[in-house]
């Protein structure tokens, strides 16, 4: 399975680079930092049916950091939710692949773009499943920067109160937010302790180690009656050396030369 997820992550990175370059769009750094998490989720963790995106018993995956959606669209298309040929319409006139994640795209549950929205929505989905006695689970992928939003902490306080063991948060902890390092803007550390203090079950993992991520997610819930938070330590721009740990690649769009170099590094054909 690790081979499949590695292949998927590499292909998704390449597609995301092409999409963002063509659209002259932004947010590659965060799209690349979460690509491995998405690849593991969509190769055996999430119970989903690409040919039947609205299958009622599917696990729900919500991308809260909607600006980074290029790698999610790529992952979904590569897994068969919609044709990969549509990916190059990303950000183009009239496309449904808008540059913040859009629920009109097959496989996307919820549109985001303003930060701090998906976790409260996910809490509602998890509570609904709990009240209805249904078995599906809810996975919400958050950025680190958006943990500045108070709405997230309202939801983080709520979930253990209602024993939402069917809820899993993944934090893409790449340590760079919109205008600087997380430690310089609003320090989150000690993040695991914060979630533990809010009564969550917490694990930390190298967010680029597929086996470690899969092992952690296969075991949820880690504690009965508690929501799970996987803090995934990641590198912004992962996979492309000149994008890694660089604030500029939260904004920049690669030119032709940069795209070719980046594609070579992630293993995609230029």
């Amino acid at each position: 399975m690790s081979g499949a997820s590695q292949q998927l992550a590499a292909a998704a990175r390449a597609e995301a680079l092409r999409m963002v370059a063509r659209a002259r769009a932004s947010h590659l750094g965060g799209a690349l930092s979460m690509a491995d998490l998405l690849a593991v989720l969509y190769t055996g963790v999430l119970r989903v049916r690409p040919a039947e995106p609205d299958w009622p018993e599917r696990d729900r995956f919500l991308l809260s950091k909607g600006h980074a959606c290029s790698s999610l669209y790529a992952t979904l298309a590569l897994q068969g939710f919609f044709p990969t040929t549509e990916l190059l319409t990303y950000g183009q006139d009239g496309s449904r692949l808008m540059a913040h994640v859009c629920h009109r795209v097959p496989g996307v549950e919820f549109s985001t773009g303003s930060l701090g929205h998906a976790l409260p929505f996910g809490v509602g989905l998890a509570l609904g499943a709990q009240r209805q006695g249904r078995a599906h689970r809810v996975f919400v992928l958050l950025s680190d920067g958006e943990l500045d939003e108070g709405s997230n902490w309202e939801a983080i306080l709520f979930a253990p109160q209602h024993a939402l063991a069917n809820l899993v948060v993944l934090v893409d902890y790449n340590r760079i937010q919109s205008l600087g390092a997380v430690s310089e803007v609003l320090e989150l550390a000690p993040l695991a302790d914060k979630f533990r203090a809010f009564r969550w079950a917490v694990r930390e993992v190298d967010g680029h180690n597929h086996d470690a991520v899969r092992t952690a997610l296969d075991g949820v819930p880690w504690e009965p009656g508690r929501p799970s938070c996987l803090i995934a330590h990641t590198v912004k721009g992962r996979g492309v050396d000149f994008m890694q740990n660089s604030l500029a690649w939260h904004y920049r769009s690669p030119n032709e030369t940069e795209l070719a170099a980046a594609l070579r590094q992630v293993g995609g054909a230029p």
Partner: peptide, 17 residues
Amino acid sequence: GVAEQNLTGLAAGLAAS
């Protein structure tokens, strides 16, 4: 609880359920 952003967001999630 006293948390209207979460109240409204989770209401949307419940409605989607």
